[in-house]
Structures are given as structure tokens and as C-alpha cells.
Amino acid sequence: MDAELIAMQLFSGVALGAILVMVALGLSIIFGMLGVVNFAHGALFMVGAYAGLYVATLTGSFWWGLLVAPLAVGAFGMLIERVLIRPLYGRSIDDPLLLTFGLGYVLVETVRILFGNEGMPFPTPPELAGVADLGIGYFPIYRLFVVGVVAVILLLLWLGLEKTRFGLIVRAGARDPQIMRVLGVDVARVWLMVFGLGVGLTALGGVLAAPMRSVDPEMGTLVLAEAFVVTVIGGMGSLVGAIVAGLLIGIAISMTALFAPEMATIVMFALMALVLLIRPQGLFGKPGRA
């Protein structure tokens, strides 16, 4: 087994990890700010993929699907927060968890009714078809594009959270929402926008992942499990943890698939168990946060 094959497999793991980062980031943002464990996150990932496919088919352009779907699903997420989640604030953490768990099933069955059970292909845009020579081998251009988009999103998210007033409010509200209310901040509005942002990120992940796999109603199930594993390893509510753990899991799955394909599905759970034994709060989490 030569070094080029290993290097290409590592890069494939980064591309897979980039998708996991997008989904886990949305999950971590929602939990970190609202304290809501969103079990509908995988279903919203799937809805994002279907929305992207629908818009792309309607307009004939992948780019419109990539732009419109996250915005539309993010707005839908804000509606979910306003109508379903908000009345449960201040109650047991189990209440929104169970609600979003049931909501996930509702979304999946709704998509089944509208689009059927069969998987639907999402063609790679012609501009991003083919492969590129990286010097260590040839790699699909579309996967390079996915890594680039996720890198840009991470940069914009960091700038938004660290360099803007809204980001300051979000970070302060995650620590002490009561003080923010005393200071006159409309915390409910901030939570609405944060929930929409988290859902929009996972919807974007769904659109980006769609050309690499078929779009089907169950595509969010495994992604949800992977996102929770990433979130637990990185630390509940930690954005840095979601990024590091997402890339770690992506590379671990990719390299395991190369050397021991039958172990590729379970390696992430083994890593999670190991991290929990050594550091129960996750790599970047705070004790007691969960």
C-alpha cells in the first residue's frame, strides 16, 4: 500500500469530516445557546437535501439550490422554534428532546408522502465534475469544493461570533440569559435567530452531501448518529470541539474503511467510548454542561 493511496484516503476523510462539521456545528450552536437537544436535526439535514434538489430541478441550477435551500429550511427552523420549542423553555430538558424526536419522524413521513421511498439522484454540477491533480493523485473536484465551502462558512461563523455585536450577545446569552434580559436584550429573538442558524447549517450540509449520495428519506438517520457522536467527542455546546471532532471522525472512518472496511461503521462509536472514559465532558466541553 503506497503513500499516495493513504494520502488520498486522508483527504477523503477530510471531505467526509467537512459534512459532519456542518451538521455538528448546527447541533452544537442550538444546544450551546438554547440548551435544546435537537433530535430532528438529521431529518432537517434530509429536508435540506430535498429542498436543494427541488430548487435545483425547478431552476436548472445547482447554485440556486445551494443558496435557497439553507435559507428556506433555516426559516422553517425559526418557525419550529417559535411555535413548538419556545413554549417548552424552562421545563425539563426531556420535553424539547421528545418533541424534536417526534418531529423528526413527522418530517421523514411527510417527505415519503411527497417524494416516495426511492432514492433520488442529485447530479453533480457540470462545473464541478471531474477530478483534479493534487500532486499525490487525482481527487474529485466536487469534494474539494465541499471542503472549500465549509472552510469559508467556518471563517464567516467565527467572524460573526467573535467580531460582531450579535456574536457577543449570543456568547453572553449562552452563559447567562437572565443578565441579558436585565440589560434589555430581547433574548427570545436571539434564540429564534440562533435556532434558524443551526438548522440552516445542517440544511447546507444536506445540500452539499446530496451529490455524493442519493437523496432519500432515511439519509438523515445515520447523519444524526454521527453528529451526536461528533458533538459528544468535541464537547456539548463547543463549536471548536465540533470542528475538531468532525474532522477526526471523518478521517477515522475513511482510514478504517481502507484497512478494515467491516469496522468503518463502528470506529466512531469506539472513539466516543474512549473519549468518554478519559474525559466525560468531551475534548473541549465544560464539566456539567450537558
Rank of each mutant, 00 (worst) to 15 (best):
Q281G: 03
P287H: 05
V55H: 04
T202I: 15
L98R: 07
Y142M: 08
R86E: 13
I243Q: 04
G116A: 09
M212Q: 15
G198D: 12
D216S: 14
A129I: 03
G206N: 13
R279A: 02
M193H: 09
L67P: 05
S238N: 10
I136W: 06
V36L: 14
V187G: 09
G205T: 11
L107Y: 09
R86T: 07
L183S: 10
A225W: 15
A257G: 09
M193T: 02
R112H: 11
I136K: 03
G288T: 01
L274V: 10
A264R: 15
I266A: 14
P125V: 00
L58Q: 03
E81Q: 14
V230K: 06
A260N: 09
L53D: 10
G246K: 05
V68C: 00
G241L: 10
W64Y: 05
L58F: 08
A69I: 02
M33S: 14
V185P: 10
F115K: 15
M8A: 13
L66S: 02
P280R: 11
V170W: 12
R91M: 07
L277D: 01
G198T: 03
W158E: 11
Y105W: 14
L114I: 07
A24N: 06
P126F: 06
A225G: 08
G65I: 00
F39M: 15
V146M: 03
R289N: 09
S238I: 00
E109M: 13
I136F: 15
F122R: 06
V152A: 13
L159M: 13
V111K: 05
V36K: 14
D94A: 14
G102E: 09
V146H: 01
L144G: 15
F259D: 04
V14P: 08
L247D: 05
F145T: 00
G241N: 08
R175L: 15
G42I: 15
A273D: 03
V187D: 10
A209W: 12
L277M: 15
Y89I: 07
L84D: 04
V267Y: 10
A290P: 01
L168G: 14
V185N: 05
R171P: 09
T231R: 13
F145D: 05
A3T: 12
V149T: 00
I6G: 02
I253F: 00
V36E: 05
F195C: 01
P140C: 08
A72H: 01
T164A: 02
R112Y: 06
M8R: 15
V68W: 00
I19S: 01
A72R: 03
V106Q: 05
G167R: 12
P121D: 10
T57F: 00
F195T: 07
A72F: 00
L271R: 06
G60Q: 11
R181V: 03
L277T: 00
A3D: 07
V73R: 02
G241V: 01
I169Q: 14
L283F: 01
M263T: 01
V199K: 13
V83L: 11
G42C: 13
V111H: 00
L44W: 06
N117A: 12
A15G: 14
G104T: 08
L114G: 00
H41R: 12
L161P: 03
F122H: 06
F39N: 15
M22R: 09
V267C: 01
V229F: 06
I179H: 06
G173C: 04
M219Q: 15
I93Q: 11
A7W: 13
A51L: 07
A43Y: 13
G130P: 13
F11M: 15
P96A: 11
